[in-house]
Design a protein around this nucleic acid. Structure first.
Length: 607
RNA sequence: GCCCGAGUAGCUCAGUCGGCAGAGCAUCGCAUUCGUAAUGCGCAGGUCAGGAGUUCGAUUCUCCUCUCGGGCUCCA
């Protein structure tokens, strides 16, 4: 998983593999128009427009892979040639997409934004120098390089999937065929990567949700809508209880708002202007029009506005676990990670200009502290700055962006600046998480909004006895309860920390003579709010243990004659191979209780 | 929404070049009462996602719809 090779070398290799792939596609499908073909985090891709708009199939990929093998074998050296603008136009006269890139290279003002649109760093980042890389008389590609010395170095590669992708990432443009592949210097690195993909598949929360009987997505209720089963609902109940508790402890005030509202509210907030496509259609009754809420902020603003606020009340932190409804486009739905009805751990913080930076700092501290409870420690942040189209005053933008950046610096989270990727009304920080197998998930978001306070005309009375406009911070920590649960399931591969497990203890009497003892243990545990089940002796012990293990239950107790006599239990601890026998019953109670109270990531027993 | 692919029992999947639909696990019944990852036997379980078309006959071929998967776009 850890990439020992220099990253740049790996990017060179993968970008070279992309060239080889393009060469192979041109050979198999003459007349193909080339788009772009960069190296990416786990491999590379190349976009093609095939003759007659042909789509590629899995079989085509195998053919292309074969052809690539031939190119690799024939050991073609990569050579760089520098061209004039006119020379480049001539050279690529049959490649309209390349011509578009070349023309933009010649036009400084456009280059920067095109570069950003296309993620073209690999292709172009030096406007004065148009170069190509050639590795055969017949094949060359517009490219800044660098490349590996020869095609023969690209030994360990594999084409993975084919997908549609819009030219320049714009859905109004031509849709091309994108082939994804990956390449490594050593076969064993490739094998390890493919292995990791398999591992990821095993951890898929949609599969785990099914296997562990947590939730399902019945088609009759519609896409992007989920039903939580008793076990899944237990998990989210624990998550939500924990979230509420932590918020209240940290100075957030609970609020509660309805799921629908008259359209007037969303007109004032502007949602019906800029978010309507993502809202469920309207409902009419008694001459009024209602909408399901896609966000809670307008409601929270009304709560703020319900009385005249003093600076002494600020920062005012309103918090709600709110289910919101968003009509996401069908193609983006993805298990619990992208739903049409989701529950945000949503907060809106109203504060003064002077408080802003400190408030952002404490939000980030709070977030990290809460997330560390789950054993999550690897975070990365994006600071998204002012986009080309924006509302408000540049001075405001600069001030707020600086506050966000300065808070990030203090928090010690590694971050990058996402230039121009802010929402049009506000800059934001997004926090991403690396999970147990290195995948990136988007989690929390912090946005500073100076539009909505204005739209609703909210104010506070300052020390100076004058009216001022507060800043409003939108903030979600888990993002959504459902998505956070998906992340946890995948991160822990279904083996959730005991405090979140729907069944925390399973008691297995060896035979029916031991049932009373098992029942007594269950009663005792239940009185301590520990979720416990009994698996009676109508199946062989081995089978009961196996099933309980497959359900990833943290504590599987086996009780027999000697246990009754000595008031002990045998424990099969999740994650340990061998059972631990003869643990005193009271000691066991202490062990589970402190596991749950301390929110251990994995159950532990000191023998 | 767009491109590609998929949908067969509760689950995992086989199968039908167009001719009465198959397995394992789970469920249910009977027997088994067991000290650490699968006890045995039996019963039952299906509008082959839904609709339309072609055909003597469609789960199989064609079209439409729904849902899911991988991408693109989007992600206030």
């Amino acid at each position: 998983m850890v990439q020992l090779l220099d990253d740049n070398k790996l990017l060179e290799l993968r970008h070279s593999a992309a060239h080889i792939m393009a060469q192979a596609v041109l050979k198999l499908f003459p007349g193909t128009k080339l788009g772009i073909g960069p190296a990416i985090e786990d491999g590379f891709y190349y976009d093609f427009l095939l003759p007659d708009n042909k789509s590629l199939t899995q079989e085509d990929l195998l053919q292309i892979e074969k052809e690539m093998g031939k190119i690799v074998k024939s050991d073609q050296p990569f050579t760089k040639e520098v061209l004039t603008f006119e020379g480049a136009l001539e050279m690529f006269k049959t490649q309209p997409f390349k011509l578009e890139i070349i023309r933009s290279l010649n036009n400084d003002s456009q280059t920067e934004s095109l570069n950003r649109d296309l993620d073209l760093e690999q292709e172009i980042d030096d406007v004065t120098d148009i170069s190509i890389y050639r590795n055969a008389d017949s094949f060359f590609d517009l490219c800044k390089g660098p490349h590996v010395k020869s095609t023969s170095q690209v030994k360990a590669f594999k084409l993975l999937k084919v997908a549609g992708a819009y030219w320049r990432g714009n859905e109004h443009n031509q849709q091309m065929q994108r082939i994804y592949g990956t390449a490594f210097f050593a076969e064993k690195d490739l094998a390890e990567y493919l292995n990791r993909l398999e591992e990821a598949e095993k951890r898929d929360h949609r599969k785990l949700g099914n296997d562990l009987d947590l939730f399902h997505f019945p088609s009759e209720i519609g896409a992007g809508l989920v039903l939580f089963h008793p076990k899944g609902a237990r998990v989210r109940l624990q998550l939500e209880n924990f979230s509420r508790e932590r918020h209240l402890k940290s100075g957030y005030e609970p609020v509660w708002t309805p799921h629908v509202s008259k359209q007037e509210l969303f007109e004032t907030s502007g949602h019906l202007g800029f978010y309507k496509d993502n809202m469920f259609p309207s409902m009419e009754r008694e001459g009024s029009t209602y909408y399901l809420k896609p966000m809670s902020c307008p409601f929270h603003v009304l709560i703020y506005k319900s009385s005249l606020r003093s600076y002494k009340e600020l920062p005012l932190r309103l918090f709600e676990l709110a289910t919101v409804y968003r009509f996401e486009r069908s193609g983006v739905l993805h298990g619990l990670a992208r739903l049409r009805a989701l529950t945000q751990d949503d907060s809106h913080i109203f504060c003064t200009k002077e408080q802003l930076e400190q408030e952002i700092c404490s939000i980030i501290d709070f977030m990290l502290e809460v997330l560390q409870t789950f054993g999550l420690t690897e975070f990365e942040a994006d600071l998204s700055t002012r986009p080309d189209k924006f509302l408000g005053d540049v001075k405001d933008w600069d001030f707020v962006t600086e506050s966000l950046e300065s808070a990030l610096k203090k928090s010690n989270i590694p971050y990058r600046i996402a230039e121009g990727e802010g929402a049009f009304y506000a800059p934001k920080i997004d926090i991403h998480l690396r999970d147990a197998i290195g995948r990136k998930w988007q989690l929390s978001t912090v946005q500073v909004d100076f539009q909505e306070p204005q739209k609703f005309d909210i104010e506070y009375i300052g020390k100076d006895n004058a009216r001022h406009r507060p800043y409003m911070i939108h903030r979600a920590l888990f993002g959504s309860t459902e998505r956070f649960l998906a992340i946890l399931l995948e991160h822990f591969s279904g083996a959730l920390p005991t405090w979140l497990c729907p069944v925390q203890v399973s008691v297995l009497p060896v035979n029916s003579n031991h049932e009373d003892y098992a029942l007594k243990i269950k009663a005792e545990l239940s009185s301590k709010d520990i979720s416990t089940e009994i698996r009676f002796a109508d199946m062989p012990l081995g089978a009961r243990i196996r099933n309980a293990k497959l359900e990833k239950i943290p504590y599987i107790l086996v009780v027999g004659d000697s246990d009754i006599k000595n008031r002990t239990v045998g424990i099969n601890l999740r994650g340990s191979k061998d059972p631990i026998r003869d643990i005193d019953l009271d000691r066991f109670f202490n062990i589970v209780e402190s596991d749950i109270v301390d929110k251990l990531v994995e159950p532990k027993i000191q023998v």
